[in-house]
Design a binder for these strands. Structure first.
Ligand SMILES: [Mn+2]
Ligand SMILES: [Mn+2]
Ligand SMILES: [Mn+2]
Ligand SMILES: [Mn+2]
Lengths: 223, 223
DNA sequence: TATATAATTTAGCCATGCCTAAATTAGTTT
DNA sequence: AAACTAATTTAGGCATGGCTAAATTATATA
């Protein structure tokens, strides 16, 4: 078994390489809130374990073995988030930190039991996909809310789960995954979004909108 | 926050000093499956943190601060065992190892939510008392099954939870806490116990009987 | 093409928590 | 009282995973 630290590195490399191929040790260090020298050190260890491809100054990528472990940990994390949310009522801005610690520690048996209890779910409380038992991820092609135009109708697909204050804020507008809304107005000059959620008019700043991902819907009212 | 290792040491010192006052570093090392030198090292660290009283060659005891932490971890452990057993159906011979890892990692919030879900329970699946939120333990005065005489009726109160093969064995006789049985015969010369559980006749070896603790009941059939 | 800048790596250090082997102490036996 | 034995502690080492400071390399700029 790997150490918690190694698992977190693999998970982070996976996430970073999803949006941008090779991952520099600097970016990795920043993401993990660690100094670059520490990231370099761990990456070298992961290389000797053949979990990572790495050449100095050239960045890191996961091998198939490394990716499998990363997905396993991500599966733990997201199942745990949903389990804590659903079974114990932990608020959606609290589940991330809790899962961050538990993910390294639960057995495959408990993983399977949570999966069954939850009915083999495919997304966590923030809308992120839960890799299946074999590490297969079904991605949805959601777009950032900031790409929306006036009048567009859509459904919230996913929300960034890193910042719990942000989640509380987004939750206060009821913008959970699955919630439908339509854009009333996008203010010019990088301005805020005015939207309609279930008849309620709400203003969402651009920085917040960047963290919200949606699926467009054909709006029958708007033809 | 303490390290996992330090928490496990405090928990172990607590359990060992329950039956026998001061705890030697040797006993502690054996209990934790660690070399005596390692136990001495950790005990010195715990002393600088004022969690433990210790003088070389003289044994260790917990301070009030150390005892409070030990009880907090024991509470986590036992609540987790019962939660895993009740909510996720983890078999009673599996909950100990799982809880051993989770106990260091759950938040006070999750602790409180499990407690509520379980209806503020007072015993874990093996019958061990769960300290309350303030660290108060309500001990029961159970006796080892080996103290029973022929004809005695009793109820299982508690079973050792260290050895999971033993638990499977005991479970195969349905000797869970709460189960009533009566002694048919105690074979002489340190022999086995023949007992009656719900009409079924079962033979229990002495080594197993030592690990089972019971409460005597006045048996109306036997007057 | 040379040089400046920024990123990355190396070197060396620290804390934790384990280990083995050697030294010390306590307690018991003669 | 001395000697022996068993328990305990000390000394020194190793792996992990951080850190800082200095050296190196890549890249952009002149
Ligand atoms: Mn983690
Ligand atoms: Mn999430
Ligand atoms: Mn533990
Ligand atoms: Mn137990």
């Amino acid at each position: 078994m790997l150490t918690h630290a190694a698992e977190d590195y693999l998970k982070s490399i996976y996430k970073l390489q999803e949006k941008g191929g090779k991952v520099s040790t600097g970016i990795l260090a920043e993401y993990l809130d660690v100094k670059p020298a520490s990231a370099t050190g761990m990456v070298k260890k992961l290389k000797t374990m053949k979990l990572v491809r790495y050449e100095r100054y050239r960045g890191v990528t996961l091998t198939d073995a490394g990716k499998a472990i990363a997905l396993e940990i991500i599966r733990h994390h997201r199942l745990l988030e949903l389990y804590l949310f659903t079974a114990l009522g932990v608020p959606w801005d609290g589940v991330h930190d809790e899962a961050e610690k538990l993910e390294h520690v639960i057995s495959e048996d408990v993983e399977a039991r949570m999966d069954e209890f939850l009915g083999y779910p495919t997304a966590d409380p923030h809308g992120a996909p839960i890799p299946d038992k074999n590490g297969v991820v079904t991605r949805t092609a959601s777009i950032p809310m900031t790409d929306l135009q006036d009048g567009q109708s859509c459904v919230v697909a996913e929300v960034s789960d890193n910042d719990s204050a942000l989640l509380r804020h987004i939750g206060s507008f009821n913008l959970y995954p699955g919630t439908a809304f339509s854009v009333i107005e996008v203010a010019p000059f990088e301005g805020p979004f005015t939207i309609d959620i279930a008849g309620q008019q709400v203003v969402i700043g651009r920085e917040v909108a960047k963290q919200i991902f949606v699926d467009k819907v054909q709006d029958p009212d708007n033809v």
